[in-house]
């Protein structure tokens, strides 16, 4: 089965959405991502029982933070689908792409992306 979905999606694989850290998502935006969607397993189907449920809570917290810092929480979304739902994945990818196109590019790009201002950890 070959399905078409937007080519502008870059997939970052994780062992479980339960592994998602606020920093990973924020980092993606800081590096210039226009939008991020977190694709977790169906609720109730998590191999680690509650990984996807916890991920959703974290995603919601980051959405709030994105609103507060001016990036906009709408650029981040969590979806639940199983690995067998290829068509659903394509649909979500297209849906999210459409949403982000509507929102326009990551406002940080307009502000000029440059990572050299990031001091990083000194320890």
């Amino acid at each position: 089965m070959r399905l078409q979905y937007s080519t502008n999606i870059r997939i970052v694989e994780m062992t479980c959405t339960g592994n998602i850290d606020h920093r990973v998502i924020l980092g993606a935006f800081e590096e210039g991502a226009d939008g991020v969607f977190v694709a977790g397993c169906m609720e109730g189907d998590c191999h680690f029982l509650k990984g996807n449920i916890r991920a959703r809570k974290r995603v919601n917290a980051v959405k709030k933070l994105l609103d507060e810092i001016g990036v906009g929480g709408d650029r981040l979304e969590m979806y639940n689908l199983s690995s067998a739902q290829g068509a659903r994945f394509a649909e979500i990818a297209n849906e999210m792409t459409a949403r982000i196109k509507e929102l326009g590019p990551n406002p940080l790009k307009e502000a000029g992306i440059s990572n050299n201002l990031k001091g990083g950890d000194v320890t």
């Binding site: 850290d21 606020h22 920093r23 924020l26 980092g27 935006f29 800081e30 933070l65 507060e68 810092i69 001016g70 990036v71 406002p107 940080l108 502000a111 000029g112 201002l117 990031k118 001091g119 990083g120 950890d121 000194v122 320890t123």
Partner: peptide, 26 residues
């Protein structure tokens, strides 16, 4: 973790405001 999240959020916020911030975390 919270220190890094806060520093990142502040960098993004400040850049969007046209007043870039350099951060050090420890």
């Amino acid at each position: 973790k919270e220190t890094e999240i806060l520093a990142t959020a502040m960098r993004i916020k400040r850049k969007l405001e046209g007043n870039p911030l350099e951060t050090v975390t420890h």
